[in-house]
Simulated scan of single mutants.
Amino acid sequence: MDDATARLLRDETEHFYDSCAASFGATRKRPWEGWRTLVPRFSCCFERAQLRGRLPLVLDVGCGNFRFERFLRGAVDEPWRALGLDSCRLLSGDPPLGSAFRETDLTHWRPAREERGRFDLVVCFGVLHHIPGTPAREALVRDLARCVAPGGLLALSLWQLQKSERQLRQARETTARFLATHPNVELDPGDWLLPWQGREDVVRYCHGFSNDECARLATVTGLDLLDAFDADRANRYVVLSAPSDEFSQ
Rank of each mutant, 00 (worst) to 15 (best):
G34M: 12
A49E: 04
E103I: 10
R204M: 14
H130M: 13
T37D: 09
T13R: 11
S244P: 04
L140V: 02
P79E: 10
R28H: 08
L161W: 01
E186F: 05
F24R: 05
A136Y: 04
T181L: 08
R7F: 02
A26H: 02
D18K: 15
W196L: 04
D230I: 06
D120G: 05
D2V: 00
L140H: 05
H130C: 03
R48N: 12
R199G: 13
Q170I: 06
L217V: 12
Y17L: 06
R81L: 15
D230Y: 08
S92Y: 05
L153S: 07
N184F: 09
V61Q: 00
E246Y: 13
C147P: 02
L226F: 13
D3Q: 07
L59E: 06
S241Y: 11
Q162H: 14
T5I: 10
R36W: 00
V76N: 00
S248W: 11
G126L: 04
D77P: 01
V238H: 08
R172Q: 07
A49L: 09
F68K: 03
R67E: 08
E200P: 04
L38M: 05
L83F: 01
D60P: 03
P183Y: 02
L144K: 10
V76Y: 10
A215L: 12
R89M: 04
R199F: 14
R10Y: 09
F46T: 00
S87M: 07
C44R: 15
E69G: 02
A112P: 01
L72S: 01
E115F: 10
D245E: 04
T27V: 12
R54I: 06
W159S: 02
H129K: 00
R48L: 14
F66P: 00
P243E: 14
F125H: 13
S87Q: 06
Q160P: 00
P195Y: 14
L179P: 07
C147S: 10
F68W: 06
L144Y: 11
T13Q: 05
E213S: 08
G190L: 14
Q167A: 12
V58A: 03
E78W: 05
T181H: 12
R54F: 14
T219H: 13
R199T: 06
D105Q: 14
S87T: 06
E246S: 11
T37N: 05
E115G: 09
L91A: 04
C147M: 12
E173P: 00
L55H: 00
L83D: 04
D227W: 15
W35K: 01
L225F: 08
F101G: 00
E47T: 11
P189Y: 15
D143M: 05
P96Q: 07
F46H: 00
L240T: 07
F101I: 06
E173Q: 15
E103T: 08
L223H: 03
V122S: 04
H15W: 08
G25T: 05
E114R: 06
E114M: 00
A242C: 13
Q167D: 15
R236V: 04
T104V: 15
T174I: 07
P111A: 02
T175H: 03
H108A: 15
R36D: 06
L57A: 13
F178G: 06
L226W: 09
S19D: 13
A155N: 01
